[in-house]
Design a protein around this nucleic acid. Structure first.
Length: 437
DNA sequence: TACTTCGGCGCC
DNA sequence: AAAGGGCGCCGAAGTA
């Protein structure tokens, strides 16, 4: 680690200490109400389950040892007693009963079981810990800078970096619990597509730099043979997390095609076409045909971003020569690293370091001018703020200056565009809305 | 009782 | 030819 990298960690730790001290305001009464409500839903679901023949088989086999939360028991019932063929296996070679695979099984217990897991996750992982860790109406999660291989941050007690958002049902229940201080708004400023922007800084691939914001939508459209205007937020999500990132970090068409095909079931396009039926109409819904199709998309992808591909090769051979990699922010990673790790480590840490640098400057500025607004979280590319109503313009303007302009003066290696989005609410974190800066 | 591993699942 | 990467937390099950 060079001197600049050290300084970033040192100042970052001090800024994080302030952030932890500030804390996030919690609506505790709301949490209590929700927890009770969910408990009732859980009871009803368990009654519903018990009316099925499958549960009779389960209870008969395990008698007093019966445990609805035991996946081992579930596997025995499904795959031994009911003689169902396991749809897939875990890494260790055992039958898998995760949500996706359970959904492939035709049984009346599948749907209530999945719902039950979700409700228990909400209560046991989220609401319970939010309430336990809240002191005098504020929660103070620990934000760590010393735990992660890639020199990202992490968070615990509770982990504030994995609060539900993608599933609207879960997102609403949990994020409604986080509220602004008096006369304030709560929300975050996040870097748009920062990891891809950083990939561009590494490889200097002109097309990747040009496309880094639009790439997910474009690739989603290609994967599902759609026009871009048909791509919903959900479909884009799978273009991003089901194709673009897996491609960049070492996956390939076979597992990618399998995943993408599975998630088409029940999804709809902007013009309300059923995504799977759309693939059928295009004649690419058969697993083997779809894989061929994704292979074509993959080939075209790497023909387009060939400069980045070349950089990946050089990055790896450089590691083999030196035995370590050095990030653009000066951090070094040593030890045995797989190809996929090497691809990922180059971008992941420095993407977060842009946020960390911005948080440090923002914190200094807020303290220097004795502002009422406070930094309250960091989530990899998202800076959480509680902004006092009287300071809205100033704080947002300064944040934009730091995050998009000043950082490029400090770090000349940032040769790509940096863009941010702000989302805030005067009610709660769930009801955040885009704010223009 | 305390600890580890596994599978599962939430986020970026 | 072809392992997406990085986290933290839960409960179950096995071991010491």
């Amino acid at each position: 680690m060079n001197k600049n990298a050290y300084k970033l960690l040192h100042e970052g730790t001090l800024a994080f200490a302030d952030m932890e001290y500030n804390g996030i305001k919690v609506d505790v009464r709301y949490c209590r109400r929700q927890k009770k409500n969910i408990n009732q839903q859980i009871e009803l679901l368990e009654l519903e389950l018990d009316r099925t023949e499958e549960m009779k088989v389960w209870r008969k086999r395990y008698k007093d040892d019966f445990n609805l939360d035991s996946t081992d028991q579930l596997k025995k019932v499904l795959f031994t007693d009911l003689k169902i063929t396991p749809p897939a296996y875990t890494d260790k070679g055992n039958p898998s009963v995760n949500k996706d695979n359970l959904n492939l099984i035709d049984s009346p217990i599948v749907e209530p079981l999945i719902k039950l897991r979700q409700l228990k996750k909400l209560n046991n992982t989220y609401l319970k810990n939010i309430m336990e860790e809240t002191v005098n109406g504020y929660i103070h999660p620990s934000f760590n800078l010393h735990t992660v291989q890639t020199f990202r941050s992490s968070c615990d007690r509770p982990n504030f970096q994995n609060m539900p958002i993608r599933d609207p049902f879960m997102g609403k229940i949990i994020r409604t619990a986080f509220i602004p201080r008096e006369n304030s708004i709560i929300g975050g400023l996040d870097y748009a597509g920062i990891e891809l922007s950083m990939a561009g800084c590494n490889s200097k691939d002109p097309l990747l730099i040009k496309d880094y914001i639009t790439i997910h939508k474009t690739q989603a459209a290609r994967c599902f043979a759609l026009k871009e205007k048909q791509v919903t937020k959900d479909i884009r999500y799978y273009g991003k997390n089901g194709f673009v990132f897996p491609q960049l970090y070492g996956s390939w068409n076979v597992p990618i095609a399998e995943n993408l095909l599975r998630i088409t079931k029940g999804m709809q396009t902007v013009d309300n076409l059923d995504l799977y039926e759309h693939l059928e109409a295009k004649g690419i819904s058969h697993p083997e045909i779809f894989q061929d199709h994704i292979e074509n998309v993959e080939t075209r992808f790497w023909e387009t971003y060939s400069v980045h591909k070349k950089w990946q090769e050089g990055w790896i051979s450089n590691y083999y020569k030196k035995g370590y990699i050095e990030m653009l922010t000066g951090f070094r990673c040593k030890g045995i690293l797989s190809k996929n790790q090497l691809f990922n480590y180059a971008n992941q840490g420095i993407a977060f370091h842009c946020l960390l640098w911005s948080i440090i400057q923002m914190n200094k500025w807020l303290k220097k001018y004795k502002m009422k607004s406070k930094l309250i979280w960091n989530i990899h590319d998202d800076m959480g703020l509680d902004i006092h109503n009287t300071e809205k313009e100033d704080v947002l303007q300064k944040a934009k200056e730091i995050m998009c302009i000043e950082i490029k003066k400090a770090w000349k290696w940032i040769i790509t565009p940096l863009e941010i989005e702000a989302e805030f609410s005067n009610k709660n974190w769930y009801e955040k809305e885009k704010v223009k800066i």
